[in-house]
Design a protein around this nucleic acid. Structure first.
Lengths: 224, 224
DNA sequence: TCAAAAGTGTTATGGTTACACCCATGA
DNA sequence: TCATGGGTGTAACCATAACACTTTTGA
């Protein structure tokens, strides 16, 4: 029976300075030497696909312990110019505390790109990113994954901005806050964000435990 | 670099006599000889995963030309007792016109099972089915995939029953019809379903073309 | 004291839910 | 003629959308 090379690739999203970003590496090996690509690599014996992405992310970009979700497996015959490779793509969300990256092993350089200013990428990686963004849009509509992109304590303005970027549309501030707070999952604190330029904004956090309790009883999370 | 065996498996759903069914085969080869399993097989050189599922379905069950969607790739080290195999699962929806099945090649027998009366299956196939049902529930909520399980012309009662089975809850007949017809995607015909026991019910069809037109302009399909 | 962003309520509209009876047909 | 499933409308309720001014702070 035929055997195949299997790769994994990761579309890593982050949210910084009001931009949605994607992590890319500059390839240090052929094919597509010196071109930008998704971080990833080959599956090894003895590891699952998920183990493999985690290892590659750690090796190539120094990113650890993040939200990871399988996206799709790409299997077109000629997606790798040299030899047939089947790749399983994951998407990942990192929060700013996990943001320190450094190039390593097969990567010459690692860099965050604004998701709407991406270069042409190696392989079918532009296509993979397209699918990842669509998936992120779908997921964020009904799951509280947006918080994975934020620090533990965040302002409602930041959260709103994140949703505005991902959905590419403006949201009414008052309605957004009302809807959010009515869920009883976004908890007010006494902390203030003094980093802003003027009046400090109140910080909130997402109550994950309560979310899972609500979810178990059939509640649906939807804030936009 | 390591190479791997890759398989494909299909969770094939059908809707018949007010039951949601799943197609299983009795395995004619080791491992799990004589046990029930999902139809599937090994990926070959020169075919994509999707080509492969289609071929396997045709070979093992004589099912052709159906709605197919990639579900997930399963890669745990010991999911196959003999040798490592990574499998990509698909889910499929067949309508009653495509319903004629027959066992072939590696399958001793092919049979439709009610989805809530499944035997213990080979490999991790029960787990795969679990994921497929969850995916089907999600998809059917916002996409008109339910019609893939129905003949071209159907009664609203059948459609309602299908949704009731998949979501496992009762739906109010009047509200269901109102909401459906308001979309202008379910088109009334002059045909009647004379197969019923009493008063014949009117037949409708789903206007796929119009759906894609609406979809392109940002409309969201949701009927429950 | 002023510029900038934070924070806050009300009303109109549209969608969802709850609910019960008559109708057409085949046996 | 009657049993069976087919077919229909209205009112109460709730969620969403639209909309503008006051407050707090740092410079």
């Amino acid at each position: 029976m035929d055997k195949f090379l299997i790769a994994v690739d990761a579309v890593v999203f982050a949210y910084d300075k009001d931009y949605l970003k994607i992590l890319l590496i500059k390839r240090g090996i052929e094919p597509f030497l010196n071109e930008w690509a998704l971080p990833g690599g080959f599956l090894r014996k003895g590891e699952s696909l998920e183990d493999s992405v985690k290892r590659e992310l750690k090796e190539e970009t120094n990113i650890n312990d993040i939200f990871l979700k399988q996206l799709h497996t790409f299997s077109l015959i000629n997606r790798d110019p040299r030899e047939r490779v089947i790749t399983t793509a994951y998407y990942a969300l990192v929060n700013p505390e996990n943001y320190k990256i450094k190039a390593d092993t097969d990567a010459l350089e690692v860099k965050w790109f604004n998701f709407n200013e991406l270069p042409k990428l190696a392989f079918d990686h532009n296509e993979i990113i397209e699918m990842a963004i669509n998936k992120l849009r779908k997921d964020i509509e009904f799951k509280p994954v947006g918080f994975e992109l934020l620090p533990e304590y965040f302002t409602l303005a930041k959260l709103q901005k994140l949703y505005e970027i991902i959905f590419d549309k403006e949201i009414d501030k008052r309605n957004f806050r009302k809807k959010l707070l009515k869920t009883e999952l976004i908890i007010e604190t006494d902390k203030k964000d003094t980093g802003g330029v003027k009046r400090p904004a109140r910080l909130y956090y997402f109550d994950k435990k309560r979310y899972f309790k609500f979810k178990a009883t059939g509640f649906k999370f939807k804030i936009i």
